[in-house]
Design a protein around this nucleic acid. Sequence first.
DNA 1: AAAATGACCGATTTACAAAAATGGTCAAAT
DNA 2: ATTTGACCATTTTTGTAAATCGGTCATTTT
Lengths: 188, 188
Amino acid sequence: MDRKQWILDAATECFSEYGYKGTSVEQVAKRANVGKGTIYTYFKNKEELLQVIMMRVVQRFELSLEKNVVAHVPFHENAQQVLKDFLKFQKENALTFQLFKEMRELKTAEVVTIVQEFEDCILALLKKQLNVAVQNGEIVACNLELTAFLTYHMYLALVAEWSKRHKPLTDEEISKVFQLFFCGGLMR
Amino acid sequence: MDRKQWILDAATECFSEYGYKGTSVEQVAKRANVGKGTIYTYFKNKEELLQVIMMRVVQRFELSLEKNVVAHVPFHENAQQVLKDFLKFQKENALTFQLFKEMRELKTAEVVTIVQEFEDCILALLKKQLNVAVQNGEIVACNLELTAFLTYHMYLALVAEWSKRHKPLTDEEISKVFQLFFCGGLMR
DNA sequence: AAAATGACCGATTTACAAAAATGGTCAAAT
DNA sequence: ATTTGACCATTTTTGTAAATCGGTCATTTT
């Protein structure tokens, strides 16, 4: 019935399995049981297809966070929740996993753009959390943009880079490191 | 006279300019004014040539640090000095700059290995600084390996990643961020 | 009339073989 | 005892013919 949804579903499956570049429009059409031309009556081009899919993914991501981020909880716990959910999301969403990989390895232009937007969304969420915490007087005033950026990259280093040469860190270990840097810092 | 040094100098120039993969052994021989066979009387193969060169670079790097890292100075200042010197070193050494680039872009196996060893050397220096600071009771006890790792990656994020989409940070700004996270942390 | 379609188009990518270049060896030259 | 470049097997590059791609649109289907 809803041919547009058929196409979106088929495209999501294909992109998840073969990546963006590795998926042809005809392949999507085949899996969606529509003609190739039909896709172009609903979407301007292949890139828009990915954009619409990712827009919805981002919406789901933001929704999944609203449940987990709560007021009256220390910032570093909420921030960590945002990042933990991001990781969980990656694990459960073959699509974003595949796209992050494609960005790193093939650097497909359209994919780089879309993944950057996804990262911007995560950064915006962290920034929002930071802002609330500053307003509450919970944390010291600081460059929100930069601090959110650094928080995100600290997390990436801990979960992605560290595991390349060490035993992956448990959630508790990551939590401990975050606590160390956020509350109190290193110095006695 | 010292043919071995001629070869090392020529190879350093070539690797700096064209990268490891982009440099042929014959090219090195030409620039060193020796026959190709001569190179193999001093070095087992092309990889060992790079290894010997990098060994010396690491020695120079460690030497350049000894001057700048001093006792009775807060850890975060010494740590930052290590990292700042690393960056300065990168700027002044076309070789390491080229190799880091080749590792990221071409992922040449031999280069990945050698650069990793260089990074390990930086991490060891940071760890050493951390250890001294812990012994002094200057900073809290923590996983030294992990903390050094995170410090290094925070720095990379600030100087390399941030500039990809923002105006590069000044030394003062970087210093301020480090101070924020190391002394006192974010929380009030 | 509106929606769907696949043959078709120019452009890009792939497949593949021939040619060139590379890392490394070694008998001959120095 | 040391140096060397012709030489070898392997890898990389190159040229190009074939295949595939994203996107269009006249025709067909609903």
